[in-house]
Each structure stands twice: as C-alpha cells, then as structure tokens.
C-alpha cells in the first residue's frame, strides 16, 4: 500500500476518533479550561498529529495514548464534580485581589501579578480607577471578576424604584420566508394569527425574511424588499394614548357640567381612569 493512502486513512480515522473524544470530554468553553485540561487537549492533538504524518509508527499506540489522555482528564472532571476538596485541588481557587476597596499586595505577589497587570485587568472590566472597586477576585481561569463600589455601579431600574413589566424571550416565527410552527405554538398562536397580522401590515409572507413575536403577541418583521417601510407595532401606544385622551375628556366634562351629581360622577371616573393608566402604563411601553 502506498504511504500516501496510509496517511489518508490514518488521518480520517484519527479525525473521527478525536472528534468523539472531544465531544465526550464536554463542551466547556475553551477559555474556561484550567491548565490541566488545556494541556491534555494539546497532548491529544499532538498524538493525533504525530501518528498521522509518520507512517512508521505503530498505529495502535496512537489509540492507547489517546485513550489514556482522554480517560484521566475525564475521570478527574467527574470526580471534581462530586468533591469540593478535589475540585479546589485540580481546578484551583479564586484569589482575592481587592477586598473592601484595598488591594491585597501579598496575593498579587503570590500569583505573580504586577501592578500593571492588575490595572490592565481592571481596564478590561471598564474600570480605570482602582478606588472604584469594592471587591475583585482572580478566577482560576485567569480572568478578573470585579464588583465596583455601589456608587460606581450602573444605574438600574431597581435603584430608581421604577416598576417594569416582565418580558419573556421573543420567538422567531418566520425565517427566510418559512413559517416556524413550534415557536408559534410556544406563544399559543397559529398560522391564521400570523396571516392576519401580516395582512394588517399589508405584506405577503413570501416577502418576509424574518418575523419575531414577543410574549405580548406583537409582531415585528424584516422584509426582503428593503424599500418597503414596515409599520412599527402601534397597538399598545395607541391604547395608552386613547386612555389618556378619555381621562382628559372626563376632566373636561367635570369642569363644564353644572349638575353636581354628574360632576361628581365625572370626577370619580376620571380618578379611576388615572389610576388605571398608572397601573398599566409600564405594561404598555
């Protein structure tokens, strides 16, 4: 058998073998690998590489070496899942770099981080002033996790005491002009609903590149024909505007009537509508 055929066959078998080994080793993201997993990954690759291009080697040795380099990290990973002490040993522990706003110089030195390295890591986290940091820990994978001081944290709706309506993930209901039935069913909607909504926008389904519906059943579409302007969903803003208009009308009636009973009725209902607007407005935005 000519050597090039051997190389070809070896390559194909090892590619398939390596593919399944890496599949079984789990789908941990490459950046989350600790040094041990990283090295075993490299060794697996090199063993495959050596045995591919060198036809003189004994091919069965490739399998033995790869199985060993697969089983040991695999076993270590499985034991580490069960035991916290073992996990600390194999994967390492986080090291606190900044606590209560104070830099821990000893820990920096122990990990071999210079002040410049620390500042660089902080800048990666968008922090340029070390005194803005309340707490920072170096994770075992080498990234720095930073908790900024309370006043340096981005403002959230919770800080402002604003009540926001909860939203769920939107569903993609049309992709490349094809209706996806499962996402539609997740929103308990059907194709009739989709056709009606598209009719309302005056677009045909063949022209739709992408359509998504949110958990309130509002549909947004993108068309193949970019010259056609698609109307934004108006149902909710329109409803809120109508409620406000009615409330203003009721106040006007209350001012203009001379009948005390009617006046009282108008005022009462105006107040009721006002409270209704207050409860609902966060859901209609």
């Amino acid at each position: 058998m000519p050597e090039w055929i051997i190389v070809l066959l070896r390559s194909l078998t090892l590619i398939a073998f390596l593919f399944f080994l890496t599949k079984w080793l789990g789908s941990k993201h490459l950046s989350q690998l600790n040094s041990f997993e990283y090295i075993s990954g490299i060794v697996l690759g090199s063993v495959a590489a050596i045995h591919t291009v060198n036809p003189d080697t004994n091919f069965s040795y490739a399998f033995i070496a790869m199985v060993v380099w697969f089983i040991v990290p695999f076993g270590v990973e499985k034991i580490a899942l069960k035991s916290k002490a073992f996990r600390d040993f194999t994967e390492g522990k986080g090291v606190v770099f900044i606590q209560d706003g104070k830099i821990m110089e000893d820990n920096l030195k122990k990990e071999g981080y210079s002040t410049d390295d620390l500042l660089e890591k902080l800048r990666n986290n968008n922090i340029f002033l070390a005194s803005d940091v309340e707490f920072a820990v170096l994770e075992p994978n080498g990234s720095l996790s930073v908790l900024p001081k309370r006043e340096s944290r981005p403002l959230t709706a919770k800080d402002l005491g604003i009540k926001l309506a909860p939203t769920k993930e939107p569903q993609t209901v049309v992709m490349d002009g094809n209706v996806l039935l499962e996402p539609l069913a997740n929103l308990s909607l059907n194709t009739n609903w989709l056709e009606t909504e598209l009719d309302k926008m005056n677009v045909s389904i063949e022209n739709v590149f992408l359509a998504q519906a949110d958990s309130d059943g509002q549909l947004t579409v993108d068309l193949y024909d970019d010259m056609i302007a698609v109307p934004a969903p108006t149902e909710k803003p329109l409803l809120l505007a109508t409620m406000k208009k009615c409330q203003a009308d009721l106040e006007l009636f209350a001012l203009s009537t001379e009948n005390p009973e009617s006046k009282e009725m108008y005022q009462r209902n105006s107040k009721k509508l006002q409270s209704a607007i207050a409860t609902i407005s966060s859901y209609l935005n």
């Binding site: 309130d216 329109l238 009615c246 009308d249």
Partner: peptide, 26 residues
C-alpha cells in the same frame, strides 16, 4: 365609545399575553 374600544383592546391584550403578571394587571 372610546372607553368601549379601550375595554376591548385590553381584553385582546390580556388574552394574548403569556405573562401572568401582565395578564393580571390588564
């Protein structure tokens, strides 16, 4: 008649929404 239309729209929205909180508010 505007109030009637508001009532109807709210009914439609509360039936369409998947969220229990929004449904209750509506």
């Amino acid at each position: 008649s505007s109030i009637k239309s508001i009532e109807a729209s709210l009914g439609v929205l509360s039936n369409k929404t998947q969220n229990i909180d929004s449904k209750q508010a509506l």
